[in-house]
Design a protein around this nucleic acid. Structure first.
Lengths: 132, 132
DNA sequence: CAACAGATTAGAATTATTCTAAACTGAGAT
DNA sequence: ATCTCAGTTTAGAATAATTCTAATCTGTTG
């Protein structure tokens, strides 16, 4: 509860009511995957008043401060992952569900070096699932 | 020219004027990455008359028939890749540019097995680039 | 507690994509 | 060749996710 405030302060984000509400929902659980919409619905259910624009603003702020990680798997929506450690994902296209795969399990060999003037910022691996 | 018709017929797609136009743009080059919009602009420039809806329809038809591969890297748009062999990508977020990485170069070890009732359909690796 | 930069808000705007319903066109049968 | 019809194309409307706008509000610093 107080720790959310500290998280925000440590990231130089003003601990406003709505950021704290969102922070509670996100950081008291581990490895949560949300979309702006899903979070907005969750907040509404909890009787809180918050606008969708604020949810978007906050998610983006949290991403910039590395409190969240953006995951693009599906063209339809952006997911935000509270697990900011380097890691990968399973994704079930049918259920629109993300599952973390811890990175230390996975070794990638043979990645070519980045084109001149560029460097590899992040490697994202998504294993798409289908019903077997 | 004729080969495009054959490609279409082999995929049981009626070789209509617009599918042939699109096929020419896509399959006479190798490893092209397009979005619906970029292709639409390209078609307009070539004095052809085609609607954006048809571009979308055709790209989706081609995907279903495995003539194209959908790539989701960026929440903003879907890319379509004429390279349908298993392969991976570099992606420059700033330039919105995709570069193929041939799959046989890359070895991935330690991928956990899919959750019960699921199997891994496809593994997609995207190395995000930034300026170095 | 005043003041102001930063945050929130409702609603409009934008962007990518899909849908709709009417008009058109390949291809097989005649 | 022509007819027929399922499969296509089309313009424009509709939808969905996200961003923008401009007015209002609120933490924080002095």
């Amino acid at each position: 509860m107080n720790s959310i405030k500290n998280i925000l302060r440590n990231s130089s984000l003003r601990p406003t009511k709505q950021r704290i509400m969102i922070g509670k929902l996100l950081f008291n659980d581990t490895n949560k995957h949300v979309t702006a919409e899903s979070l907005y619905r969750e907040l509404k259910a909890s009787e809180q008043k918050i606008s969708l624009a604020t949810v978007y603003n906050t998610l983006h702020d949290f991403c910039e401060k590395k409190l969240l990680k953006k995951v693009n798997v599906d063209a339809e929506k952006v997911y935000f992952d509270t697990n900011t450690n380097p890691h990968h994902h399973f994704y079930s296209d049918s259920e629109k569900l993300l599952i973390d795969i811890s990175k230390d399990k996975i070794k990638i060999h043979g990645l070519p070096k980045a084109p001149k003037g560029k460097k590899i910022k992040d490697v994202e691996l998504i294993a798409h699932l289908s019903d077997s």
